[in-house]
Design a binder for these strands. Structure first.
Lengths: 204, 204
DNA sequence: GACCATTTCAAACAACTGTTTTAACTATGC
DNA sequence: GCATAGTTAAAACAGTTGTTTGAAATGGTC
């Protein structure tokens, strides 16, 4: 395993566990078993390291999201009927939760994503928002078509509720308990439970 | 206005805007217009300052929550029918959103609370969890009665979805945009929209 | 083996962190 | 008017932060 990979793997876990700001370069390089200056040499800065981690996992996920959302949009243009809330939300949510299955490293990344929604740190927030906003807009447009009797402002709020619920599922894990209610187990069934919750909640 | 009050007011806004870790003592005392050492003199430490802010707003809100939840629990014991999802969730949510109306300072505190759910910083998390867990357990018990055909694990997840949605409403404000979808406005109608979303989402 | 670019390493850097110290100030009670 | 307790002030504290430096080591190519 290359130094670069070792750093990314270690940083991902530490960022997920303790957040970006709280994680020090020394903690990262120590866990990775490399020299302190290796991060600046290979990535340039701590922030660039986070960006690299983000892009590695985020890009393939987002491509699938855009593809599926485009397909739904196209279908609704060809057929006379608008898209359903469920197919719109599924196109967005399901690719995201591939993170649950994508090996050990993805398992940590999903926590970073789950937290990004209410992240106070401007560095993290900007990296995240810049990547998620375009696809959010696509999703919102589809939802407006799916809920023709609902104002765009109300759709925006409902979408935000949905993203909040989704965020909790992404950060949801058994240990360490960030906010562990004591009864949940992360399994594939949870994604369907989440989608069911959101679809019912959004209904006009 | 006393030095203590000046500090709490300034810190609350800064904690809400930039998070606990990122906000420095110098930023707080500078904004409050007091000497740097005043925080340690009046509160003991930065962490104790956060605790003081938390307790000031949290205590009255939580008392009302517990009162209302107890009333619902008692009523469901006397009458033959179980509580509804809506009255359980309303008892929990509505007192929280008094923060929206409780003047300028409360307006900042609600952001701190909204973020706490996915907070990576252990200091903040522990302060928050220690205070919110007991009432969450009360709420969960009521919800299990309201959804007798649903397993406790599933109720736990649904409650977590609900808290995630609620978190987004608490942090929801027009500026600065932490995660601003562009269309929302925070008004009293949002709370009803949120409750409607959650109640429908939870339905068996 | 000599040359080269690439990578690693230990050490130091300046800037910033929360906290402590010690002296100065302010008001109150007698 | 003076002692006293409470509060404020400037300065320094020790520790940590991300980053930079310049030398040492490494690995491939001729």
């Amino acid at each position: 395993m290359t130094t670069k990979t070792k750093i990314m793997k270690a940083a991902e876990e530490l960022f997920a566990h303790g957040g970006f700001h709280h994680t020090t370069m020394r903690a990262i390089t120590s866990k990775a078993g490399v020299n302190l200056s290796a991060v600046n040499y290979h990535f340039g800065s701590k922030e660039a390291l986070l960006t690299a981690i983000f892009d590695m996992h985020w890009t393939p996920i987002n491509e699938e999201r855009v593809q599926r959302l485009s397909r739904v949009a196209k279908k609704s243009q060809e057929e006379p009927q608008p898209p359903t809330i469920e197919e719109a939300m599924r196109s967005f949510i399901e690719p995201t939760f591939a993170l649950f299955q994508s090996g050990a490293s993805g398992g940590y990344f999903r926590i970073i994503v789950g937290r990004a929604l209410s992240e106070p740190d401007q560095t993290v927030r900007e990296i995240f928002l810049h990547r998620v906003m375009p696809v959010i807009e696509m999703l919102k447009d589809l939802l407006c078509q799916a809920m023709p009797r609902t104002s765009r402002a109300e759709v925006s709020w409902k979408l935000r509720f949905a993203l909040g619920a989704m965020s909790q599922t992404l950060t949801g894990h058994n240990q360490p308990p960030l906010f562990y209610l004591g009864e949940e187990k992360v399994s594939s069934g949870v994604v369907d439970l989440l989608i069911g919750f959101i679809v019912k909640g959004m209904q006009e």
